[in-house]
């Protein structure tokens, strides 16, 4: 059932619209794509991300998770070899397989949490900022309430309380406490936008509030949305890895990047068995850097004055 979450992991290479409708001015996607192509670092990052995502989701289809997480007493702590590309851990489990499945799990959670928090945050922020006044006040007090909760503690409590959690339930728990930041951000931008005359112009030509909110104001927030979502993706992957590292994420039977890194808490592993924790650590680092590079390029693309291309 876990393949189900592999739905659309952020289009790595957005399909460029064919040149047949050349009379149209460049669409938003085209501008984003052009900016990334101009920025070699971002392009390399995007290609690398795409390759990682494709290979991770592809290879994990072939791998048998049951077999990988099964303890093998005859192959404890083996260094890398032809049979075990990245060696084995203290349970004799293949580290390479764990790395692939772990990356897939971490990415799935990161993407899912980012999309869900984005959706909730945009809806609440947009409504609250666009209407302002009483509606804004009510929504923001609600946000304040969630903000003062000690997120990490509550997530840990939830994870401990819910006995059988998978990627979806874990994502939902994280989402419940991570949507406020983006809601606040969108709200502040929407408050700014609604004062501009084009919003009033839309009202005088008879557009409904709903139409103005989603068709007029939302496109003007797209830059900030894309950038925050991209950067949030990195943060959410980091948060999941952090929780797993602390032991409040997934159990060892469900590998993630965090569980692999947490093996390094054992001094012996840290000192002598680098193959267990180093690949996962490096992968986290590179993934974060790549996502951030792409995020920065997108940020420039959405502001015509900063564009390179």
């Amino acid at each position: 059932m876990e393949q189900a979450y592999a739905n659309n992991p952020a289009p790595p290479a957005a399909p460029v619209t064919p040149p047949q409708d050349a009379e149209k001015s460049p669409s938003g996607w085209k501008i984003l794509w052009r900016e990334i192509v101009r920025d070699k670092l971002a392009l390399a990052s995007l290609i690398f991300l795409g390759a990682v995502i494709l290979s991770v989701y592809g290879v994990s289809l072939v791998l048998d998770q049951e077999q990988i997480v099964t303890v093998d007493l005859f192959a404890l702590n083996k260094p890398p070899s032809a049979k075990f590309w990245l060696g084995t851990d203290y349970g004799g489990r293949d580290v390479f397989g764990q790395l692939i499945i772990g990356t897939r799990n971490s990415l799935s959670i990161g993407i899912l949490v980012t999309l869900l928090t984005g959706l909730i945050g945009i809806l609440i922020g947009l409504v609250s900022g666009y209407f302002g006044g009483l509606i804004d006040n009510v929504f923001m007090r609600f946000v304040d309430f969630f903000m003062i909760l000690p997120t990490l503690m509550v997530v840990i409590a939830f994870v401990t309380a819910v006995p059988n959690y998978g990627i979806v339930s874990f994502s939902l728990i994280m989402t419940a406490f991570l949507w406020m930041g983006i809601a606040r951000l969108i709200r502040s931008k929407a408050l700014q936008e609604r004062e501009l005359e084009y919003v009033q112009a839309s009202r005088t030509v008879g557009s409904s509030h709903l139409k103005i909110m989603f068709a007029q104001v939302l496109p003007n927030l797209s830059s900030i949305i894309i950038v925050t979502m991209t950067l949030n993706l990195a943060a959410n992957i980091g948060l999941e890895s952090g929780l797993s590292f602390l032991g409040f994420g997934f159990p060892e039977s469900t590998p993630s990047l965090g569980t692999l890194v947490s093996y390094a808490t054992n001094p012996q592993t840290l000192e002598f068995r680098w193959w267990i924790w180093l690949p996962a650590s490096i992968l986290i680092l590179i993934l974060m850097l790549c996502i951030n590079n792409v995020g920065q390029a997108l940020k420039r693309a959405t502001d015509a004055r900063q564009r390179k291309g």
């Binding site: 501009l196 084009y198 009033q200 005088t204 007029q216 797209s222």
Partner: peptide, 14 residues
Amino acid sequence: QMIFQDPYSSLNPK
């Protein structure tokens, strides 16, 4: 109908 004062903010830039 109305013609607005500021031609820069009265047209949606997107």
